[in-house]
Design a protein around this nucleic acid. Structure first.
Lengths: 340, 340
DNA sequence: AATGTCTGTGAGATCGATCTCACATGGTTC
DNA sequence: GAACCATGTGAGATCGATCTCACAGACATT
């Protein structure tokens, strides 16, 4: 037997007042007699009354939930961000709905739609595609609060929190060049993804600034999972003239590269040098430790959540585009390459 | 200007029918004329109508959302589980609300309450405390579908999905004993937590089965974070007669132990042997690789989600208590201890 | 012709909380 | 005493979708 939770009506009946009065007593607005208020509160307590947020939301048009659509919570980068967003949401009396787009545009669209039909108050999204984003533009033009993280989307005019991907990638590749490398590999994920584009463009910029011509054979594309990255790395390094250094665009791919190198008997940094984008706990546990481009992960989620709540509280400032700096953290996975 | 989304009323008006008819046409139930149905569908299309799930939920009493309260999504173990649950929820047209209890009972209770007032359909919870669980019992007695994962809670009669913690711990410690160790350390988290208790009890069982008396100086308790585990490990190994082997109860603590050993200049497995509970990606990247007790992480979330949806679809079977086996994965972090 | 059955449709109630409005009091002020 | 206010309360509308019920017309059966 499912015991129905007590409603305002029940409370009102027990306290012998109307629903309106009960509501006033419990939410303390309007005029309520002192004695009446106590009676209502006692009744509420006795029945274990909790207001139905659903009904409230239907009435006032908005559910105190924020929606968060990320690539995959299993990626520690996104897990950290999701966690930080949840903490802030909780402080403001909101809950967090999470969806993984799995980097599939269609999934992102349908998730967003399903969350919109819940009258969710605002969204934080790491868009899968830098181009196909009519769904996001529509959100913005309907004035639904939206904050993009990790990636921006073309033509979508809203708050965003990203890092300097191009600069970070350039620093990494320039460092490799400084260390004498010229055949520098790039392990990247799908070009649809904003970060992938920017990091690639940093890679190119570094090469061309140093008079190294772009060589497609140095570039491998794979999905951003450890397994796919292993395969891609193996392909890249099975060539006749493999790279002498590798730059990977995210931590899962860095892990994949590490596994691939181990299985191929390639040693770091003796045989090949490695720099990954995005620091991760594993990077300091390996021998040698991995040199990485680190981003301020702990800031991204927090700042995005704060921006969202500013919008939710009705601020109508022009969109803020926040871009954090990245930092090259030199550890032991890069060695000097004797010119060959 | 916020453009209000179209409602059923708008669709009905455009199609020149009543709301009831429009609803019938769109949800295909009852009798609707063929032509009318088309008219309504066209109107819905034209207005971009999406039904308001909030209103639906208010009407039929349940929101197609499942709530998931875990210790911390940043723990890869929970991240994996959350991801798997979300995938299954999505297949069934549900969304996922996630809350981190941060292992604080009060937070777990308030999260649960706030989600309950949303008329959420069911919950998957990794309860913080093995004892204090009136809130969970109340849920069950109100017939709210609830599945416990990773940990069971005393007196809460519902579906659960856990692993054989005691057996896993025992296997680990017995292996250490077989390898000649007698001063075996235990790094565990709060005894409130179910897994912590069970794993400790496996540790004790193994010791006493082998005639080794329990020594409190061999046991360190800390919160389940890398940082706290580092401190606890350092304390444990700063004693005059430190353990010759260490068993850690989860992957974050294993990481902490690794960091502590490194900072203390203690080498694995030469100076100390190590086994951790729960396999984790890092374990195979270290040198030597870490021997662990592995649990079928990929099953836990999926099975829990399936159990929940069975309940949601109205099955009234007795609670299922699922317990997966664990496996000792021997790698390189344990060495034979010459009896001293 | 009377009764029955099948289609198709609309009016109105419902879910629970909130808010507007109207209506009471009792007291104050000119 | 008339006009006004502050205080306190309840009736009823509202949010959007759904469902029950009543009803109307078309056709078939006796």
């Amino acid at each position: 037997m499912v015991r129905k939770p007590a409603t305002l009506k029940d409370v009102a009946a027990l306290a012998n007042v109307s629903r309106a009065t009960a509501a006033r007593a419990l939410n303390s607005y309007g005029y309520v007699g002192g004695e009446t208020a106590l009676k209502v509160q006692a009744a509420a307590e006795q029945l274990g009354y909790r207001s139905n947020r659903l009904a409230q939301a239907l009435r006032n048009g908005q559910l105190p939930i924020v929606g968060c659509i990320l690539g995959d919570i299993q990626n520690p980068f996104f897990a950290r961000i999701a966690h930080d967003i949840e903490v802030i949401a909780r402080e403001r009396g909101h809950n967090l709905v999470i969806g993984s787009s799995e980097e599939v545009l269609q999934l992102e669209i349908s998730l967003l739609g399903s969350l919109q039909s819940l009258s969710i108050r605002g969204f934080i999204v790491a868009p899968t595609s830098a181009d196909d984003n009519g769904h996001l533009q529509q959100l913005v033009s309907n004035n639904v609060p939206l904050v993009l993280i990790d990636r921006v989307a073309e033509g979508v005019d809203c708050d965003s929190v990203v890092v300097d991907n191009e600069g970070g990638a350039r620093k990494a590749v320039e460092y490799l060049i400084t260390m004498g490398h010229r055949r520098i590999g790039l392990l990247q994920d799908d070009m649809r993804i904003f970060t992938s584009r920017e990091r690639r463009s940093g890679y190119r910029a570094a090469l061309s600034a140093n008079g190294i011509s772009l060589d497609d054979r140095m570039i491998a594309v794979s999905q951003s999972t450890v397994e796919h990255a292993v395969d891609a790395t193996i392909r890249l390094f099975s060539q006749k003239a493999p790279p002498t250094a590798l730059f990977t665009v995210d931590s899962l791919m860095t892990q994949g590269a590490l596994l691939a190198f181990r299985s191929m008997g390639i040693s770091i940094p003796h045989d090949v040098s490695l720099i990954g984008f995005d620091d991760f706990n594993l990077a300091t546990f390996t021998d040698p430790q991995i040199t990485v481009v680190s981003q301020p992960v702990s800031e991204i989620g927090r700042v995005a959540a704060r921006l969202l709540f500013e919008r939710l509280s009705g601020q109508d400032a022009p969109p803020q585009k926040i871009r954090f700096e990245t930092k090259l953290v030199v550890r032991g996975s890069v060695s000097r390459h004797s010119a060959g």
